[in-house]
């Protein structure tokens, strides 16, 4: 079946089999391999992307259901060569090690930060319930999200 949706700011028209997952569509057919798959029980969050501005697990989202939707994956977050403030924060606060959970972690955090300009560590930790990291012990991820949230809102004010 054919679907049309916005992907990282551009219209996409693509034929999808009904059983195809958004993660499969992005990774296997659209070449956007920044979205990762780390589990098969919809828990790890490595596959998180935004659909209509909300974070969802692309491994549990049927591509067929995306007609008319707006999808943003990690590849669509930066503004050209300029990193998104959340990406920059993960870099500056050493919020990643192996990098596998990072795209989902960042996408999840961006949704959180939109509504939380100055989050406590506890609030960040609670939000990240759906994102596993095996390397960092989460500590620097928490700092990254706090810094990224502050930077996002500073940027918005400055703009």
């Amino acid at each position: 079946m054919q679907i049309r949706f916005q992907l990282n700011g551009k219209p996409v028209t693509v034929d999808v089999p009904p059983h195809e997952l958004l993660s499969e569509l992005l990774r296997d057919r659209l070449g956007l391999t920044g979205t990762h798959v780390g589990c098969d029980t919809s828990q790890c969050g490595a596959c998180v992307v935004h659909v209509d501005g909300r974070s969802v697990k692309s491994c549990t989202t049927l591509a067929a259901a995306l007609e008319g939707a707006t999808v943003t994956s990690i590849e669509g977050l930066a503004d050209g060569a300029a990193l998104h403030p959340m990406q920059q924060a993960f870099h500056e606060k050493h919020g990643l090690q192996c990098g596998f959970c990072t795209p989902g972690m960042i996408m999840s955090s961006v949704e959180f930060a939109k509504n939380n300009p100055d989050p406590t560590p506890e609030a960040v930790r609670h939000w990240l319930e759906g994102n596993f990291c095996r390397c960092t012990g989460y500590q620097n991820i928490v700092s990254s999200v706090q810094a990224g949230a502050a930077a996002m809102h500073a940027q918005r004010k400055g703009a």
């Binding site: 997952l21 098969d40 029980t41 919809s42 549990t60 989202t61 049927l62 067929a64 259901a65």
Partner: peptide
């Protein structure tokens, strides 16, 4: 019938469910 798919899609992935069709109510 398919709602959010948070239980059904994981079951499909693990081949624990095999419907002929999904009717997406959203």
């Amino acid at each position: 019938a398919l709602g959010g798919g948070m239980s059904l899609v994981p079951a499909l992935k693990l081949r624990l469910a095999a419907p002929s069709a999904l009717v997406d109510l959203r």
